[in-house]
Simulated assay, not measured.
Amino acid sequence: MSELSREHAFVLRETRPQALPFVPELRLRLADEAISLWQATEADLGRMGLPPPFWAFAWAGGQALARHLLDHREIVRDKRVLDFASGSGIVAIAACLAGACKVVAADIDPYARAAIRVNAADNGVEVETPEIDYLDRGADDFDVVLAGDVFYERPMAARVEPFLRAAQNAGLAVLFGDPGRAYLPTMGVAPLATYDVPVSRAIEDRDIRTTRVWRFTWPGSTN
Protein backbone atom coordinates (compact mmCIF):
# COMPACT_ATOMS: atom_id res chain seq x y z
CA MET A 1 0.00 0.00 0.00
CA SER A 2 1.42 3.39 -0.99
CA GLU A 3 2.02 6.22 1.48
CA LEU A 4 -0.75 8.27 -0.09
CA SER A 5 -3.32 5.47 0.08
CA ARG A 6 -2.31 4.80 3.70
CA GLU A 7 -2.99 8.41 4.61
CA HIS A 8 -6.31 8.33 2.79
CA ALA A 9 -7.30 5.15 4.60
CA PHE A 10 -6.20 6.65 7.93
CA VAL A 11 -8.43 9.69 7.45
CA LEU A 12 -11.40 7.48 6.61
CA ARG A 13 -10.73 5.20 9.58
CA GLU A 14 -10.14 7.85 12.24
CA THR A 15 -12.82 10.41 11.38
CA ARG A 16 -16.54 10.48 10.63
CA PRO A 17 -18.67 12.79 8.45
CA GLN A 18 -20.17 15.55 10.53
CA ALA A 19 -22.48 18.47 9.88
CA LEU A 20 -21.32 21.93 10.89
CA PRO A 21 -24.18 23.97 12.40
CA PHE A 22 -22.32 27.20 11.66
CA VAL A 23 -21.57 26.26 8.03
CA PRO A 24 -24.42 23.89 7.09
CA GLU A 25 -23.64 24.16 3.39
CA LEU A 26 -20.88 21.59 3.79
CA ARG A 27 -19.88 18.51 5.79
CA LEU A 28 -16.43 17.46 6.96
CA ARG A 29 -14.82 14.27 8.16
CA LEU A 30 -13.74 15.20 11.71
CA ALA A 31 -12.44 13.52 14.84
CA ASP A 32 -14.24 13.49 18.17
CA GLU A 33 -11.15 13.49 20.40
CA ALA A 34 -7.70 15.00 19.94
CA ILE A 35 -5.25 13.00 22.06
CA SER A 36 -6.19 9.53 20.81
CA LEU A 37 -6.04 10.73 17.20
CA TRP A 38 -2.64 12.30 17.80
CA GLN A 39 -1.40 8.99 19.21
CA ALA A 40 -2.92 7.08 16.29
CA THR A 41 -1.15 9.37 13.82
CA GLU A 42 2.19 8.76 15.51
CA ALA A 43 1.56 5.03 15.52
CA ASP A 44 0.58 5.06 11.85
CA LEU A 45 3.85 6.74 10.88
CA GLY A 46 5.97 5.02 13.51
CA ARG A 47 7.29 8.37 14.74
CA MET A 48 6.84 10.36 17.91
CA GLY A 49 6.72 14.11 18.32
CA LEU A 50 4.55 14.81 15.29
CA PRO A 51 2.52 18.04 15.07
CA PRO A 52 -1.08 17.84 16.30
CA PRO A 53 -3.68 16.64 13.75
CA PHE A 54 -5.04 20.13 13.04
CA TRP A 55 -6.74 18.76 9.92
CA ALA A 56 -9.23 16.69 11.94
CA PHE A 57 -11.06 19.60 13.58
CA ALA A 58 -13.15 22.58 12.48
CA TRP A 59 -11.26 25.47 14.06
CA ALA A 60 -13.05 28.72 14.82
CA GLY A 61 -11.01 30.88 12.46
CA GLY A 62 -11.66 28.57 9.54
CA GLN A 63 -15.37 28.31 10.27
CA ALA A 64 -15.75 32.09 10.48
CA LEU A 65 -13.84 32.64 7.25
CA ALA A 66 -15.84 29.93 5.46
CA ARG A 67 -19.10 31.52 6.66
CA HIS A 68 -17.93 34.94 5.48
CA LEU A 69 -17.10 33.65 1.99
CA LEU A 70 -20.46 31.95 1.61
CA ASP A 71 -22.25 35.11 2.73
CA HIS A 72 -20.09 37.38 0.52
CA ARG A 73 -19.42 35.30 -2.56
CA GLU A 74 -18.14 38.22 -4.58
CA ILE A 75 -14.87 37.98 -2.64
CA VAL A 76 -13.85 34.81 -4.48
CA ARG A 77 -16.27 34.48 -7.41
CA ASP A 78 -14.30 33.71 -10.61
CA LYS A 79 -11.03 34.23 -8.71
CA ARG A 80 -7.92 32.10 -8.23
CA VAL A 81 -7.78 31.33 -4.51
CA LEU A 82 -5.06 30.07 -2.19
CA ASP A 83 -6.22 28.68 1.16
CA PHE A 84 -3.05 28.74 3.24
CA ALA A 85 -2.55 26.21 6.08
CA SER A 86 -5.80 24.65 4.96
CA GLY A 87 -6.12 21.90 7.59
CA SER A 88 -9.45 20.17 6.96
CA GLY A 89 -10.03 22.21 3.80
CA ILE A 90 -13.10 23.98 5.16
CA VAL A 91 -12.13 27.40 3.76
CA ALA A 92 -11.01 25.97 0.41
CA ILE A 93 -14.29 24.07 0.03
CA ALA A 94 -16.29 27.17 0.93
CA ALA A 95 -14.36 29.13 -1.71
CA CYS A 96 -15.29 26.52 -4.31
CA LEU A 97 -18.94 26.63 -3.30
CA ALA A 98 -18.81 30.44 -3.48
CA GLY A 99 -17.74 30.31 -7.13
CA ALA A 100 -13.94 30.50 -7.23
CA CYS A 101 -12.56 29.38 -10.59
CA LYS A 102 -9.50 27.70 -9.04
CA VAL A 103 -8.78 26.75 -5.44
CA VAL A 104 -5.48 25.52 -4.05
CA ALA A 105 -5.39 24.22 -0.47
CA ALA A 106 -1.87 24.49 0.89
CA ASP A 107 -0.74 22.40 3.84
CA ILE A 108 2.63 20.83 4.56
CA ASP A 109 1.05 17.92 6.48
CA PRO A 110 0.41 14.95 4.14
CA TYR A 111 -2.47 13.80 6.35
CA ALA A 112 -4.06 17.22 5.92
CA ARG A 113 -3.72 16.98 2.16
CA ALA A 114 -5.39 13.57 2.24
CA ALA A 115 -8.19 14.92 4.45
CA ILE A 116 -8.71 17.89 2.12
CA ARG A 117 -9.07 15.59 -0.88
CA VAL A 118 -11.57 13.40 0.98
CA ASN A 119 -13.59 16.37 2.20
CA ALA A 120 -13.56 18.08 -1.19
CA ALA A 121 -14.84 14.92 -2.87
CA ASP A 122 -17.54 14.50 -0.23
CA ASN A 123 -18.72 18.03 -0.97
CA GLY A 124 -18.61 17.62 -4.72
CA VAL A 125 -15.89 20.19 -5.42
CA GLU A 126 -12.38 20.10 -6.83
CA VAL A 127 -9.49 21.43 -4.75
CA GLU A 128 -5.82 21.18 -5.69
CA THR A 129 -3.45 20.01 -2.94
CA PRO A 130 0.13 20.41 -4.20
CA GLU A 131 3.18 19.53 -2.10
CA ILE A 132 4.41 23.13 -2.11
CA ASP A 133 5.49 25.34 0.77
CA TYR A 134 3.98 28.65 -0.28
CA LEU A 135 5.83 30.49 2.48
CA ASP A 136 8.91 29.97 0.33
CA ARG A 137 7.24 30.23 -3.07
CA GLY A 138 4.89 33.19 -2.53
CA ALA A 139 1.36 33.65 -3.81
CA ASP A 140 1.88 35.45 -7.12
CA ASP A 141 -0.29 32.96 -9.05
CA PHE A 142 -3.47 33.89 -7.13
CA ASP A 143 -6.01 36.67 -6.80
CA VAL A 144 -7.09 35.94 -3.22
CA VAL A 145 -5.22 34.51 -0.22
CA LEU A 146 -7.17 33.14 2.73
CA ALA A 147 -5.95 31.85 6.09
CA GLY A 148 -7.95 30.52 9.01
CA ASP A 149 -6.51 30.30 12.52
CA VAL A 150 -2.80 30.66 11.75
CA PHE A 151 -1.62 32.94 14.58
CA TYR A 152 -1.63 30.37 17.38
CA GLU A 153 2.15 29.96 17.73
CA ARG A 154 4.99 32.50 17.67
CA PRO A 155 7.25 30.81 15.04
CA MET A 156 4.29 30.23 12.73
CA ALA A 157 3.03 33.80 13.12
CA ALA A 158 6.50 35.20 12.50
CA ARG A 159 6.54 33.57 9.06
CA VAL A 160 2.87 33.87 8.12
CA GLU A 161 2.37 37.59 8.73
CA PRO A 162 5.14 38.69 6.31
CA PHE A 163 3.85 36.16 3.75
CA LEU A 164 0.32 37.57 3.93
CA ARG A 165 1.51 41.17 3.85
CA ALA A 166 3.69 40.41 0.83
CA ALA A 167 0.64 39.01 -0.94
CA GLN A 168 -1.25 42.22 -0.19
CA ASN A 169 1.69 44.30 -1.40
CA ALA A 170 1.45 42.41 -4.70
CA GLY A 171 -2.18 43.45 -5.09
CA LEU A 172 -3.93 40.32 -3.85
CA ALA A 173 -6.98 40.34 -1.58
CA VAL A 174 -5.96 38.88 1.80
CA LEU A 175 -8.40 37.78 4.51
CA PHE A 176 -7.79 35.76 7.65
CA GLY A 177 -9.97 34.38 10.41
CA ASP A 178 -8.90 34.45 14.05
CA PRO A 179 -10.64 33.91 17.43
CA GLY A 180 -8.15 35.95 19.44
CA ARG A 181 -5.06 33.76 19.29
CA ALA A 182 -1.99 34.91 21.17
CA TYR A 183 0.01 36.06 18.14
CA LEU A 184 -2.65 37.81 16.09
CA PRO A 185 -1.12 41.01 14.65
CA THR A 186 -2.12 44.02 16.74
CA MET A 187 -1.21 46.80 14.31
CA GLY A 188 -2.28 47.47 10.75
CA VAL A 189 -5.30 45.15 10.86
CA ALA A 190 -9.05 45.74 10.95
CA PRO A 191 -12.02 43.40 11.41
CA LEU A 192 -14.43 42.83 8.54
CA ALA A 193 -16.95 40.74 10.47
CA THR A 194 -17.49 39.12 13.87
CA TYR A 195 -19.10 35.73 14.49
CA ASP A 196 -19.89 33.58 17.52
CA VAL A 197 -18.65 30.19 16.36
CA PRO A 198 -19.57 26.84 18.00
CA VAL A 199 -16.41 24.82 18.63
CA SER A 200 -15.48 21.41 19.98
CA ARG A 201 -14.38 20.99 23.60
CA ALA A 202 -11.81 18.55 22.22
CA ILE A 203 -9.77 21.53 21.02
CA GLU A 204 -11.05 24.59 22.89
CA ASP A 205 -11.78 25.56 26.50
CA ARG A 206 -15.30 26.80 25.73
CA ASP A 207 -18.28 26.00 23.51
CA ILE A 208 -18.41 29.31 21.63
CA ARG A 209 -15.52 31.35 20.28
CA THR A 210 -16.07 34.96 19.27
CA THR A 211 -14.14 35.07 16.02
CA ARG A 212 -13.33 37.82 13.56
CA VAL A 213 -12.50 37.91 9.88
CA TRP A 214 -9.67 40.37 9.42
CA ARG A 215 -7.94 42.34 6.69
CA PHE A 216 -4.73 44.34 6.69
CA THR A 217 -5.15 48.11 6.68
CA TRP A 218 -1.62 48.81 5.53
CA PRO A 219 0.98 46.54 3.95
CA GLY A 220 3.73 46.91 6.52
CA SER A 221 7.10 45.20 6.34
CA THR A 222 7.56 41.88 4.59
CA ASN A 223 10.95 41.19 6.14
Score class of each variant (00 low, 15 high):
T211A: 05
V125L: 14
A190K: 09
G61C: 03
T194G: 01
F57M: 00
L65T: 11
A173D: 12
V145K: 14
D141K: 08
F176D: 11
I108K: 01
I132N: 00
E33N: 05
G62T: 09
Q63A: 14
G220H: 01
I93R: 10
Y195R: 07
P52V: 11
R159Q: 13
L175C: 07
A85K: 00
L135P: 09
E161T: 11
L65H: 09
P51D: 08
L20K: 03
A19C: 00
L164Y: 13
N123F: 12
L146N: 04
L20H: 13
A190Y: 07
W214L: 03
R215E: 11
D207I: 02
A173C: 10
D122Y: 08
G49R: 06
D44I: 00
R6L: 10
W55T: 04
S86C: 08
E25S: 11
P24S: 06
I35N: 12
E204N: 15
N169D: 07
Y134V: 04
R165G: 06
A166H: 07
P21N: 08
A121I: 04
E131M: 05
A105F: 05
V189F: 02
P219F: 05
F176W: 13
V125D: 09
A158G: 12
F22T: 01
A40P: 06
D71L: 10
V118K: 07
R212M: 07
Q39Y: 07
N123A: 08
A85D: 00
W38P: 11
E126C: 15
R206K: 15
V23A: 07
D44M: 00
D83Y: 07
L135C: 12
V150C: 02
W38L: 13
R13A: 10
E74Q: 15
E25R: 11
E33W: 03
A105N: 11
V23D: 06
E126P: 00
R13L: 02
S200V: 02
A19H: 00
L70Y: 09
P17Q: 08
A19P: 00
G62K: 09
D122S: 13
V199Y: 06
A121G: 05
D136A: 15
D44R: 02
R13F: 00
A98T: 15
R212A: 11
V103Y: 10
V91K: 12
I90G: 12
